[in-house]
């Protein structure tokens, strides 16, 4: 009955159940957090060009250029069940072809322990702002917002939009030249 192996098996099974229960409790302690925070976004330069999109279908598409400022303090979002924050700056707008367009312009991973204070000045976008078609020129209602995906040690993966958005208007003329 009480062989070495059966005792080992019992200890192993018990350890696993205790760990599972503790992990679940850890998840419960942070399950109802709102993960909200205030963000300031601004833009200093907005232009649009019309060039062939060689990364996609090679059609002439609108390519937006946005130089932006952003400041936020995300330190309060971290607790013992937050492994990392995935921040992403989204431009959301409507065109004649598509009722909803969302393009991520910039993103950043903040792992727990890293500096979670953002202070960007005259930053360029990390990804190209390609529209799917020609819907950026003269578009007066492009909303920029910062959201984050909270990645826990164990638990749900909430997606939260920061308080504070910024509306940009694209010029009605394509800009010539390289930039």
């Amino acid at each position: 009955m009480n062989t070495f192996l059966s005792r080992l098996n019992t200890i192993f099974a018990f350890t696993l159940s205790v760990m599972a229960a503790l992990t679940f409790c850890c998840f419960l302690t942070t399950a109802f957090n709102s993960h909200k925070s205030k963000i300031d976004i601004g833009t200093s330069k907005v232009t649009v060009k019309n060039v062939p999109d060689y990364s996609a279908d090679r059609e002439r598409s609108d390519l937006g250029f946005v130089v932006f400022d952003m400041s936020a303090d995300l330190t309060p979002l971290f607790n013992w069940n937050v492994k990392q924050l995935f921040l992403y700056l989204t431009a959301e707008y409507k065109t004649a072809d598509n009722v909803l367009n969302q393009v991520v312009l910039w993103d950043k991973i903040i792992v727990r322990g890293e500096n979670a204070i953002l202070n960007l000045k005259n930053a360029n976008t990390k990804y190209y702002f390609w529209d799917y078609g020609n819907g950026l020129k003269g578009n007066e209602n492009v909303t920029m917002s910062l959201s984050w995906n909270v990645v826990p040690n164990a638990g749900t993966l909430p997606k939260v939009m920061g308080d504070g958005r910024h509306r940009i208007q694209f010029p009605t003329e394509y800009s010539a030249g390289r930039f």
Binding site: F86, N98, V99, L100, N101, Q102, V103, V104, Y132
Partner: peptide, 10 residues
Amino acid sequence: HRVLKVHEKD
């Protein structure tokens, strides 16, 4: 993987 761009029609 994570979604980077979305274009939705009506």
